[in-house]
Computed example of a mutant assay.
Amino acid sequence: MKLTIKKKTNINKLLRKATFISIVILMIVVLVASNEITHYKVAITAQPLNGCLSTDSLPCTDTSKKTISEPFIPDTKLNKQQRFLSAIARKLPTVPQPGTYEYILLRNYGAVFVNQDVGIKLPQKDIFANEQETQEFQGSLTMGHVDGTKDCYLQKSAADALNKARVQQQIPLKSGYGSGDCTRTFNTNLRFWHKYANNQVLAKVQQGKETKVLGLVAPPGTSQHLWGLAIDLRVSNKEQRKALNQNGWFQTVQNDVPHWTYVGLSEEILPLFGFKKQVVQGFTYWITPL
């Protein structure tokens, strides 16, 4: 009787052991299969973008999910314009076509769309229609305070980079105090436009007949200041410029001397993204190649 009970106990142990081994094997099979599926999905997600970059024509729209966090480097086989467009195609759902008002704006104010800083947020288009659209976008931003100011705020990454530059050198705001130099409301942008231009000039800009004014003031709803990625500064020497450049800040709007844009790239890499160096009256601008 005792022997029979012992045999049953051994059999139960063996059964439990066999069940445990089967469960482990099943888990391994599931994990391997899951891992293969994940890699397959990643390969599919990356494929449309690779296709955009390999073409000799203008880059196509990237319809894949924008989850890529690694820094993007343009294909050096492309020309300057194509390299620039391949970078902004990752940021804009649809790249404006040549000859359109949106394309004119992109040419003048589109430098920020190559920014690789994962901490910033870019708009999905280069024109806000009204104050409500502007506020909705600005309400989604993570903002940072510019040290030594009362009410100057930028997107946090931009503010942090500017604060580092201002630790290296004293760099005052254009006005010396405030919000008009930093992130602006739609109505502030509109007020500045009416100070220097009018609706007739706007109509000419929209047709591409008057673009010099864009180096003086941005049309309503189009200013980089609305995106929290631009600031007006009083820069008077090379040391100040060097400190700003070292922290990703550049002059990108030709003839707008006090205007600085947070591009987030080093000066050495700007040509790789298609930017053209333009020196005008002693001021160095990095211009988009559009």
Rank of each mutant, 00 (worst) to 15 (best):
M1E: 14
M1R: 13
K2W: 05
K2D: 12
N10F: 12
K13F: 03
K13V: 05
L15K: 14
R16S: 09
K17I: 01
A18E: 08
F20T: 09
I23T: 09
I25H: 03
M27N: 13
M27W: 10
V29K: 09
V30G: 03
V32G: 07
T38H: 13
T38D: 13
H39N: 15
H39R: 14
K41S: 09
V42M: 13
V42D: 15
Q47N: 15
P48V: 06
L49D: 12
N50F: 11
N50C: 06
P59Q: 03
T61G: 10
T63Y: 14
K66C: 03
S69P: 00
F72A: 12
I73G: 00
P74I: 09
D75F: 11
K77T: 15
Q82K: 13
L85S: 05
I88T: 01
V95G: 00
Q97I: 12
G99E: 12
T100F: 13
I104A: 05
V112R: 01
V114S: 02
V114H: 05
Q116E: 15
Q116H: 08
Q116I: 08
G119I: 02
A129I: 03
N130F: 05
Q135N: 13
E136L: 14
F137K: 01
S140E: 08
G144V: 00
H145C: 00
D147R: 05
G148E: 01
C152Q: 01
K156S: 05
A158N: 06
N163I: 06
A165C: 08
V167L: 06
V167Y: 04
V167C: 05
V167S: 09
V167T: 15
S175C: 04
G176H: 07
Y177E: 11
G178Q: 06
S179N: 07
G180T: 11
D181W: 06
T183W: 04
T185A: 02
T185C: 03
R191N: 10
W193E: 01
Y196G: 00
N198S: 10
N199Q: 14
Q200R: 10
L202D: 12
Q207R: 14
T211D: 10
T211R: 13
K212L: 15
V213E: 06
G215P: 10
L216E: 15
V217L: 01
V217D: 00
V217M: 04
P219G: 04
G221F: 01
T222A: 06
L226R: 00
W227I: 03
L229R: 00
L233Q: 02
V235N: 01
N237E: 05
N237R: 07
R241C: 04
K242A: 10
F250K: 00
Q254D: 11
Q254E: 13
N255V: 08
D256Y: 13
D256T: 05
V257M: 11
W260D: 06
G264Q: 08
S266N: 10
E267A: 15
F273N: 01
F275R: 09
F275N: 09
K276C: 07
K276V: 14
Q278I: 12
V280Q: 12
W286Q: 02
T288P: 04
L290H: 11
